[in-house]
């Protein structure tokens, strides 16, 4: 396994706030990794640190084995598409693509033209005059056509509608299959991307709380529902992410059930159901928020 990004004991403080709090992980070569978490969890700060746009408070980052800060050799192999990219005054869409074609060594102009047509990007319009969706589409075009060895998408689709997002996922998958490369996708639309991901990182309040293969996370949590007394008895002593009660009926989301425990629950007349990645992340990240309110 080759690690494209290696982060060790990384902390970034703004005053007393630890935006990134003692985080360690690797991003594996040629995988699509999802960086998930709530708004303000520290995802964007983390990506800015990885791409050398911020100074670390402590810890180390290796990008292609080297420190990223002011390191043109590794940054030229990296494409970072962020939600609210700013452009020089007077820049039109066509200027953005021209600059991108100079910056990225693997730039594919034909692919870029194709994507511009698909996403209906008005290239002759000034970036400042573009709608959010159009500006996002430019970012998507640059991110895909750059074919950078490491491409990081930070919430790439503000203002993109469902049709355009679907087109983005399809084009990303198709181009990734033809030209395997390392992709980090940060988003809160977890349901939409869940099946695209090979690895999942979840960050919450600056801390990394999940670092696992997407396949291992599937089935790692289970919803068990039925008569409240039965459900409560079953849930006792287990890791419960969420509890819902309506009348005499209860539903709990629990982690780490073995197949035989699931079968036992079903045999006891309880309903056993799957938990999506999105529900799992919500369960994990809401728990911490609740504890904070309580303390």
């Amino acid at each position: 396994m080759t690690a494209i990004v290696e982060v060790s004991d990384l902390t970034k403080r703004y005053g007393s706030l630890a935006a990134v709090d003692d985080v360690s992980f690797v991003v594996r070569e040629h995988a699509i990794t999802g960086l998930l978490g709530r708004n303000g969890a520290g995802k964007t700060t983390l990506m800015q640190l990885i791409t050398g746009q911020e100074f670390v408070t402590s810890g180390t980052i290796r990008l292609f084995g080297q420190p990223p800060l002011e390191n043109a050799a590794v940054l030229s192999r990296t494409c970072f598409i962020k939600e609210s990219q700013t452009y020089p005054d007077g820049f039109k869409g066509e200027h953005v693509l021209r600059v991108a074609s100079w910056v990225f060594p693997h730039w594919d102009g034909a692919l870029a033209r194709d994507l511009v047509a698909e996403f209906r990007v008005p290239l002759d319009r000034r970036m400042k005059k573009m709608s959010r969706g159009q500006a996002s589409a430019i970012g998507v075009v640059v991110g895909l056509a750059s074919r950078a060895e490491l491409t990081i998408f930070d919430e790439p689709y503000a203002g993109l509608d469902a049709v355009a997002r679907r087109a983005f996922y399809d084009r990303l998958l198709a181009d990734y299959a033809e030209h395997p490369r390392t992709i980090v996708l940060s988003t809160h639309l977890i349901d939409e991307v869940a099946d695209l991901l090979e690895h999942v990182l979840v960050i919450d309040e600056g801390r990394l709380i999940i670092d696992a293969a997407a396949e291992d996370l599937r089935g790692s949590a289970t919803t068990v529902s039925g008569r409240q007394a039965d459900v409560e008895q079953f849930a006792r002593g287990r890791d419960v992410l969420q509890t819902d009660v309506v009348g005499a009926f209860a539903s709990v989301t629990v982690t780490g059930l073995t197949p035989s425990e699931r079968a036992a629950a079903a045999a006891a007349g309880l309903e056993v159901g799957p938990v999506s990645l999105q529900q799992l992340v919500i369960g994990r990240t809401r728990g911490t928020a609740r504890q904070e309110v309580a303390s």
Binding site: A31, I32, Y169, D170, L173, A174, Y176, A177, E178, P180, D195, L196, L197, E198, A214, E215
Partner: peptide
Amino acid sequence: SINELAAFHRINPAT
């Protein structure tokens, strides 16, 4: 092919 299956099911090619 792997790529056709990935595109059809909208899943990661590794899967």
